[in-house]
């Protein structure tokens, strides 16, 4: 049914990165996430799938506390990154977000030069002491995002002048530049054409060597192609979570099966 037989798409690590226990998220009184437990592994791509409005983005945004910026949003339960509770008082969400990078659905480069886009994170976190250090980080990040060849001659031109796919790769480079441990991606390819999508997917696969990647996607094929583990959300519940190949070939919950075969969602 899906092209899931690529050999290297197996889980290669069993180090836990995130552990979420009994997470509930409320917008005012509406409960958007209803008791989710999930373990996200290091050096693994985890896909979140599910019908629109089921809470994928909401849960993803709990992982780097982006929900803190929504005044009506309230999170309960426990989310640990490397064993450390990220909602603990001692955790500074700003530092957390440097460690847990995020790429958004719509490419959103800053209206600054390509160089400054990538250099922004390292600058505010003081990761580079000299201009030369910064140059190295920028080049490395752009290479990681497979944008270096296209951008190296126009580092001073505005990031907003790139094509949609290039912009998204620039955003990935920007996220990678702060040397995060986890990369959260919320439908990173939904604004991209198939070629750019393929490039980004290739990139995600490469990023897996060093990072834990969590990707929200509406494309079952994409989930099957890039992820090793898949979580299926439905109406705020985590219905099923496991090896991608397993979920797509042999789902144990009938809601999962209906969704991936296109009957709900």
């Amino acid at each position: 049914m899906f092209d899931t037989q690529t050999p290297e798409k197996t889980v290669t690590s069993d180090t836990l990165k995130f552990t979420a226990r009994d997470v509930h998220v409320y917008y005012d009184d509406a409960e958007a996430i209803k008791g989710v437990n999930v373990d996200i592994l290091d050096k693994t791509v985890t896909a979140f799938i599910g019908p629109s409005g089921c809470g994928k983005s909401t849960f993803l945004r709990c992982l780097n506390r982006m929900n803190d910026t929504i005044p009506i949003c309230r999170v309960t339960g426990e989310i640990r990154l490397d064993g450390q509770d990220i909602y603990d008082r001692s955790i500074d969400p700003v530092q957390l977000r440097a460690k847990v990078g995020m790429v958004f659905q719509k490419p959103n480069p800053f209206p600054k030069s390509i160089y400054d886009n990538v250099a922004y994170g390292p600058r505010i976190h003081g990761l580079a002491n000299t201009r030369a250090d910064l140059d190295v980080i920028v080049e490395k990040s752009l290479r990681r995002a497979a944008l270096w060849d296209e951008a190296k001659d126009r580092l001073d031109s505005p990031g907003t002048g790139l094509s949609g796919g290039q912009q998204q790769r620039l955003c990935i480079a920007r996220a990678v530049a702060t040397a995060p441990e986890v990369l959260l991606m919320d439908e990173p390819c939904s604004a991209l054409d198939p070629i750019a999508t393929a490039q980004v997917e290739e990139l995600i696969d490469e990023l897996r060597q060093d990072y834990s990647v969590v990707i929200v996607t509406h494309s079952m094929q994409q989930a099957a192609r890039v992820s090793q583990r898949t979580a299926f959300f439905h109406l705020g519940h985590l219905v099923e979570f496991g090896e991608t190949s397993h979920i797509f070939t042999n789902p144990s919950d009938e809601r999962t099966e209906s969704y991936i075969t296109g009957r709900i969602g």
Partner: peptide
């Protein structure tokens, strides 16, 4: 100012005042 710009800056770990004054 589009919210995506704020999210972008927050997403790389900018603090509130860096978002406001820098972007």
């Amino acid at each position: 100012v589009p919210p995506s710009i704020r999210e972008a800056a927050l997403g790389v770990g900018a603090s509130k005042h860096q978002v406001v004054f820098g972007h």
